[in-house]
Write a protein that binds this DNA or RNA. Structure first.
Lengths: 361, 361
DNA sequence: CTGTTAGCGCTTTCAC
DNA sequence: GTGAAAGCGCTAACAG
């Protein structure tokens, strides 16, 4: 006599409770629930009416367990938030995309936002392995030694990383070509006669950082100029040390070119650093600044800007992830957008973007 | 011979697979998984090693089904987004709070963002009834005819509504006293000699709207002034018709007081509407403007501001929800903050807040 | 210290 | 058209 006690006082009806109430078997209720045939009109109507009356909802976990499908669209941050700049603007934009592609279809959108330092051996992809996520957006750059993404890839669930990885070229991803961005930036400065070119970089240990150096070196190699790693300095959102780094890099008078590809987009601090080094952009130093917004200049005095269309790439990727999840296409996704180089003089300057969790500080 | 076939090719190991590999029973594996006693050091170590080697993760759905607990912290929007102003700032703030209280503990934070118009008979609380949510934040005002909240309340899971409901006074909630806000606003204008006081209001059909009218009427009643409902006009974020409404309300020269409690915080449009009506604030019209940011004025020319500390109330409520979820306290939560009335002259004016999903337009 | 059994709520055979 | 039985992965209760 398994399953029948209607402990409906617990608040939740099961298909067995509905079945008993309707005088049918659980299977018939299941058929109605799933809109399958093989149930007479009257029986169906009666069951539907009971379901409506008692406000029946199927147990999503039990369904998933039996049917081997998971409940939510996952969103996960592969990097600690103090190492990687997730801006408020990007986050709002991402949430809008998730709404547009998944929310509208009635999917649950589930964030795994456990910080790393809270549990060092935690896996950012546990939502996948615990079989909670039916699909997953890996929202951020991947560490060069990332292994989780390999396991995600093998798991077979639809996913998209907003970043590439050398060690997994077949990775489902939507990103921009940072190698190209760095190459174009460096080449531009070389062609203007600069030979010692400094680079302000973020992403210690992340693939986008590696790609930046690769592009930088490639341009240098082509020009026959030796690579000097002391010309590369890392800054991040947390440290607010952009001005200091610029000052120190430009302390050497032979350094006459500066690439800011740090993603910090902090024009004021760049300017401050140059001022302290006694430099004047356009006169004794040329700057190339990276921007993530096509319309916004980071520094009006910059000799050039490079626009990295990360949102645009991500939008296409998430769109495709929606289709993959719906079974309308196969993975992996491979979206790679090229950066756009631009020497047009900009007039306005966008404010420095705010970090997502800055509100907490 | 139930359960043993290790179709590990499917990618997911079960406790039975681990058990077979370790030469023990599934129960022993379960004990190790849950850090329970009754397993020898060696056995435990061996099982742990296998788990590590094969990267075992328990099936969160199966666990929940058996243990009768759910997987995620839910966040749900009880109102269609085009009727209720969820600002980007509030959303970012909310996400930060959820991170602080739940993310840090390793909880999944799961949004149900299905829009109503997409499925008219959808329930904003389905995540609770489908037993996906172990706790839930109902982020927005409740409709006066809301019934879901009653069922949520009865379900017994920890929840908090960021709004009250007349029909459920025991509702777990964190909100501000809109009755008081409207009462203070109206009384202030009455005391300055105004007798016909217009009100710009949002939230058609939602409890906060009802409370605004209640406070307004109470002040009028006390002063022995009859209530005239034509003095109340609704605006919302979508329609951008604030200027028009102000203009029409002030077309009647006897209307000399204006309360903007619409939550739109659009000083420029208020000013524009008054200008078109030929009015000058401080001279032939007095304005009381509501603000959701203590430091920010909506309209510098306003005779007074009323600050509604909704974020502050919500912060306390979410904090308590965290404790309730962790079993450290009982529900329901009852946080109610009083509005702060303020006639100080403001200098700066905050820009009009942007709606969360404006990016899509 | 360890194993057996049953069952969480649902759906998939397969039988009638 | 309908139902009985098995089992998804896990754990509580009860044996040994």
């Amino acid at each position: 006599m398994k399953r029948q006690a209607s402990d409906i006082e617990s608040g939740h009806w099961t298909i067995y409770d509905i079945a008993r109430e309707a005088g049918v078997s659980a299977k018939t209720v299941s058929r109605v629930l799933n809109g399958k045939g093989g149930v007479s009109r009257e029986t169906r109507a009666r069951i539907l009416e009971i379901m409506r009356r008692v406000d029946y909802h199927p147990h999503i976990g039990a369904r998933g367990l039996r049917g081997r499908h998971n409940a939510c669209i996952g969103v996960t941050l592969p990097a600690p938030m103090d190492e990687v700049p997730v801006s408020q603007d990007f986050f709002l934009w991402l949430f809008n995309e998730l709404y547009r592609v998944f929310g509208i279809r009635g999917e649950y959108v589930c964030f795994d936002i456990n910080p790393y330092d809270a549990s060092p051996n935690r896996d950012y992809a546990r939502g996948i392995f615990e079989q909670l996520f039916k699909a997953c957006v890996v929202a951020g750059p991947l560490a060069t030694d990332d292994t989780s993404i390999h396991r995600i890839h093998r798991s077979g669930i639809p996913y998209i990383a907003l970043g590439r990885l050398d060690s997994l070229p077949e990775c489902s991803s939507a990103t921009v070509d940072y190698v190209e961005g760095a190459y174009l930036s460096t080449k531009f400065l070389l062609e203007r006669g600069h030979t010692r070119i400094a680079m302000l970089k973020g992403f210690h240990g992340y693939q986008p950082g590696v790609e930046r150096i690769r592009g930088y070196r490639r341009a240098l190699d082509e020009a026959g100029i030796p690579f000097d790693e002391t010309l590369i300095r890392a800054v991040n959102f947390g440290s607010r040390n952009v001005a200091n780094m610029v000052y120190r890099l430009l302390a050497d008078p032979k350094v006459t070119g500066l690439i800011d590809c740090s993603a910090v987009q902090d024009g004021a601090s760049l300017r401050e650093g140059m001022r302290r080094a006694g430099r004047t952009p356009g006169k004794d130093v040329d700057v190339v600044a990276w921007t993530y917004d096509e319309r916004a200049a980071v520094l009006t005095e910059a000799a050039a800007h490079v626009w990295l269309p990360v949102r645009e790439a991500a939008a296409e990727g998430i769109e495709q992830l929606g289709e993959w999840t719906a079974g309308a296409r196969q993975g992996p996704i491979q979206v790679i957008y090229r950066p756009v180089f631009n020497t047009e003089q900009k007039t306005g300057e966008a404010p420095k973007p705010k970090r997502l969790f800055d509100l907490l500080e």
